[in-house]
């Protein structure tokens, strides 16, 4: 079965105004079928108003093991954070 079927990742938007969130994965023959399976498996109790399915093999992921070097260029810029800037006494809405 898994020789034939593709793995899909399922994302669900639980209500308007919120992001689609990853909820799990399933096997299906094509995207349309994956969408129907996702409806049956992940939205039986009104959990969502919109579903995305993405073939797992189409996802390119960063490697957590390379985390240090991958994010390194961003770690030495404390001036990006508001907390770096000290405010004078009495100023509290800036």
């Amino acid at each position: 079965m898994s020789d034939q079927l593709q793995l899909y990742e399922v994302f669900i938007r639980s209500s308007r105004g919120l992001d689609h969130k990853h909820v799990g994965s399933l096997h299906a023959d094509d995207a349309h079928q994956a969408l129907e399976y996702a409806r049956d498996v992940y939205t039986r109790r009104g959990e969502g108003i919109s579903i995305w399915v993405v073939a797992s093999r189409d996802i390119t992921a960063s490697q957590e093991s390379d985390c240090d070097s991958f994010y390194d260029p961003l770690d030495d810029k404390p001036y990006r954070h508001a907390a770096m800037y000290e405010l004078p006494e009495g100023i509290d809405s800036l």
Partner: peptide, 22 residues
């Protein structure tokens, strides 16, 4: 039907460890 869904959630979790459904 829920039980079938629960089976699927769990099989999918097991598959992330490098074993196939078959």
């Amino acid at each position: 039907q829920d039980e079938a869904g629960h089976g699927l959630y769990l099989y999918a979790a097991a598959e992330t460890l490098g074993i196939t459904r078959d």
